[in-house]
């Protein structure tokens, strides 16, 4: 009997102690005091923007489309109009669509991309007013990506390889840009 009371009062003491504790929750979405996202937070995938050239990093190689476990992406490539004068990329993405409602945020697309073209942004809110609004197209993916790049100060993981600027060497542009020599003359 006595033991029962002691155990019970002990539990109440724990509750009483927490009455003076700071709240650990934050109101959502009204409150200004939001819980911060970690740097590595994986939100929806977004396409990165190459500010030096003025085009996305994505060349439309389709490897992320093939490797996606839920087949939530589709992409088409085109010849890059900026190649070879302004950009080193021969092909560039023409259209890209990700069904964000279908995406499982696994990050496999980021792993397989060898052009640093896709990143998991910090975008994570899915509520939309229209039925098809979660199908993100190329402009919205790029704007998501640019927001993300600006927020975390993004740098390409492999800058030498994925630098989009045409590299002018002695005797012309870099290898593989045969026609470019004529343009330069």
């Amino acid at each position: 009997m006595i033991g029962g009371i002691i155990g019970f009062v002990g539990g109440l003491a724990v509750t009483l102690k927490s009455a003076w504790r700071e709240p650990v929750t934050a109101e959502y979405p009204e409150s200004e005091k939001r819980l911060n996202l970690e740097d590595r937070y994986m939100g929806f995938p977004a396409l990165t923007w190459d500010g030096d050239v003025g085009e996305p990093y994505c060349t439309g190689c389709m490897v992320c489309v093939r490797e996606c476990p839920t087949q939530c992406m589709s992409a088409e490539m085109k010849d890059n109009p900026l190649y070879p004068l302004k950009s080193r990329r021969r092909k560039i993405i023409d259209s890209f669509e990700i069904n964000l409602a279908r995406c499982i945020l696994c990050g496999i697309c980021v792993d397989v991309c060898s052009f640093d073209a896709i990143e998991m942004s910090h975008e994570h809110e899915l509520s939309k007013y229209e039925r098809n609004a979660n199908r993100a197209d190329l402009p919205s993916l790029i704007s998501m990506g640019r927001d993300y790049q600006k927020k975390i100060g993004w740098n390409p993981r492999n800058p030498e390889k994925n630098n989009g600027l045409p590299q002018v060497e002695e005797g012309g542009l870099d290898s593989g840009a045969g026609e470019a020599v004529e343009v330069e003359e």
């Binding site: 650990v24 996202l37 970690e38 740097d39 937070y41 994986m42 499982i104 945020l105 696994c106 998991m120």
Partner: peptide, 21 residues
């Protein structure tokens, strides 16, 4: 409350709170 501490740590390591991959 305790679990949230772990989830936040997971978020900083793996990028996700539950489906880490």
């Amino acid at each position: 409350r305790e679990r949230e501490k772990i989830q936040n740590l997971f978020e900083s390591i793996t990028g996700a709170r539950m489906m880490h991959n």
